[in-house]
Design a protein around this nucleic acid. Structure first.
Lengths: 224, 224
DNA sequence: CGGCATCCATTTTGATACTG
DNA sequence: CAGTATCAAAATGGATGCCG
């Protein structure tokens, strides 16, 4: 069971030794918005078989990137959460996401799965701390059945799966509309005006929402 | 020959579809400091067979991340360079490196290879733009036979393989000493005082060098 | 539901020999 | 030096089956 290694005394290579195997970074991506259950991970990651999922989770546990927890009552069911070391992979994953938003997104393909959480993470990747100066607000996103919330506190964001305690603004829309908004094919105000999205709560916080995320305009890699 | 894909409409997954295969990010890491020849890539990446190297390079070309060039005279020999899209993976790779510096480095293992360029990239990953405010200087690093230079220009760095045109400071030391300095086990002034490193050039620029890079103190992943 | 074990068809990889 | 060709070993994926 010798695990494969690049055998390089290099920070990048050492990191990839730990998280560079197939599925590993996507698994961490899933856990970035909070603990997840085994079954939910399976659902999110189509193509990752149950055997390999178990292997990967064990690996993350053994390496101190994730740990198995028991969800608080009334759930009391097992789940997986990131350790501090795991959490700190967030910036690296968001950097990959920023690159992807600019150079690799385009239209959604027929065969591709989609979960709102991925788009929420895309938003987080584009968060502009400067634009959030002096702002303290909690936004709740209800996309079909999935709920996320973003807590903005003067230049910082935190994005978690699940409802917020006291959202300042609650937004609701369909998955399709959410994809449109997070891929710049329509703006949130347009979607609201068209009745495709609803927003309730603090009007001032809602007004500031648009400027918080700087989605890059997609570029082509073909030339140059 | 369908290439494997995660089939997720997600910026992170799309990026990993392009560069998540084994060796790919390390290949890009090598090209981050300038064009490299086929043979040099083979030398740097022990364990990557020539067949796979050719496959990966073709993939990067096809996807618009790298391109084959002819080095300018008098070399006139083929080499591979990053496109703009490829260059922009730098931040993501540096984010992985920053994580590795903090959570995965420790001592060099017997089996691990090492190249000064990797440590130079580690420095770049820790560059502190604030500390470089108002500074404009070129540092040349001569580590055994390898030469790199870093061009600092008021909050920006650029690190390239090869000698600088007009270095403000030239540093020379052995690989071993360089590893020591870039892993915080000794400081550059200490190494110079001990005669293990030599520095020539502008004293003021040399004095500012130390503060430019904020190497994180290594953390253990085991607990927590 | 959560999670590990098994079996098997495909891919991916690693190592080496070989060619222009 | 820059790659191709070839083949063995390892990783993946998918389907089940099992057990608490």
């Amino acid at each position: 069971m010798e695990q494969r290694t690049y055998n390089q005394y290099c920070a990048t290579a050492r990191t990839l030794d730990l998280v560079g195997e197939r599925w590993t970074l996507l698994l961490i991506r899933e856990l970035l918005t909070g603990p997840k259950r085994y079954g939910d991970l399976q659902t999110s990651l189509r193509g990752l078989g149950t055997g390999l999922l178990a292997t990967r989770l064990k690996h993350l546990e053994r390496e101190g990137l994730a740990r198995k927890i028991t969800l608080p009552p009334p759930a009391r069911t097992p789940a997986y959460a990131l350790t501090e070391a795991g959490q700190e992979l967030g910036p690296a994953i968001l950097a990959l996401a920023r690159w992807g938003l600019k150079w690799a997104m385009g239209e959604r393909r027929e065969t591709e799965t989609f979960h709102p959480g991925w788009a929420v993470l895309g938003l987080r990747a584009c968060f502009d701390p400067k634009a959030a100066g002096g702002l303290r607000a909690v936004y709740e996103f209800r996309v079909d059945d999935e709920v996320f919330h973003a807590r903005i506190d003067d230049g910082t964001v935190e994005v978690l799966h699940g409802p917020a305690q006291h959202p300042d603004v609650t937004l609701a829309m369909s998955e399709e509309v959410f994809v449109g908004v997070t891929s710049l094919s329509r703006t949130l105000p347009q979607a609201i005006a068209a009745g495709a999205a609803t927003a309730t709560g603090d009007a001032e916080a809602l007004r500031r929402l648009n400027g918080l995320f700087r989605l890059p305009s997609p570029q082509s890699r073909s030339a140059n």
